[in-house]
Amino acid sequence: MSLPSEVRHDRMVEELVQSMAQMFGIDYALDIPVGGIFFHGVSGGERKHVSIAEVLAAGPSVPCFDNSTRGLDSSTALDFTKAIHMLMKVGDRTTMATLYQAGETLYNYFDKASCAQRIKFLSYVTDPAHREATPGSVAANMHTTVDFTASFKNSPYYASLVCEIDDYIS
């Protein structure tokens, strides 16, 4: 519905709707109103699928999903993750997603994923109230964002990232 009215009934749009509905297992519900507070429509799980499909069908440059698997059973969460992975590969696109309490199987569908230890590390490094460094270590002498930036830019991780970006651009 976010498309201009003159384009909504275009054959390509209808094919996209059918494909997205099949991909998310809601093709049987295409003629059912989504519903909401005032009247019943599709179920809560189906509503979530509709919302995700709607975001993807709009063709965003970088779709972002925040905890989009919340409330889904593990099988449906895996189906969602597989669908996102396939769409991004086919469309040569990037997406960002946060998946809380995701199993290892879901992580395997992402090219760049932060594991729990890295996330904990990042929160501790960026929060001065929780930051602890081993006395005498390089990290013990880093206190500001300028210090952290300089350290990162002198690391092999930064060099690898620059090469990856250069490869992508070329």
Rank of each mutant, 00 (worst) to 15 (best):
S61N: 12
T69C: 06
S114W: 12
G35D: 08
D66W: 05
S2E: 14
A57Q: 00
S155L: 10
Y109V: 01
Y157P: 11
F148T: 00
G44M: 08
S68C: 13
K82W: 00
V42L: 06
D111P: 00
D66H: 07
G36D: 01
F24E: 05
Q101W: 05
A53T: 08
M88L: 10
A58M: 14
R11D: 14
F110I: 09
Q18C: 06
E104T: 10
F110R: 00
E46H: 04
G45K: 03
K120Y: 05
H40M: 13
V162G: 02
Q22K: 13
I169Y: 02
D27G: 03
G91Y: 09
A58R: 12
L78M: 06
S114V: 15
S160M: 11
E6V: 05
L161M: 12
G71Y: 02
F80H: 04
G103C: 00
D79M: 08
S2G: 15
P4N: 09
I32W: 06
H85N: 12
D73L: 02
D147C: 08
D27T: 06
S74T: 12
N108Q: 14
S5A: 15
A150K: 14
S74V: 11
H9N: 12
L161F: 12
H49G: 14
D166Q: 11
N154Q: 14
S68D: 08
V7W: 05
S61R: 11
V34K: 00
E104G: 07
D27C: 02
K48M: 09
A57P: 01
R131E: 01
F38D: 15
T76Y: 03
S19C: 10
G91M: 13
S43R: 00
T98E: 05
C115N: 15
T94M: 06
S151N: 09
A133V: 02
G45H: 01
Y109P: 07
N67Q: 15
H9A: 11
A29Y: 04
F110T: 08
M12E: 15
E46R: 03
V138P: 07
M23G: 09
Y124H: 15
I84D: 01
F65H: 03
G103V: 00
G103L: 01
S151Y: 01
S68H: 04
A58P: 02
A150V: 07
E46F: 02
R93Y: 08
A133Q: 10
P135Q: 04
N108Y: 04
A29I: 10
E14S: 10
A77E: 02
S155H: 07
E132T: 11
I26L: 06
F110S: 03
K153C: 07
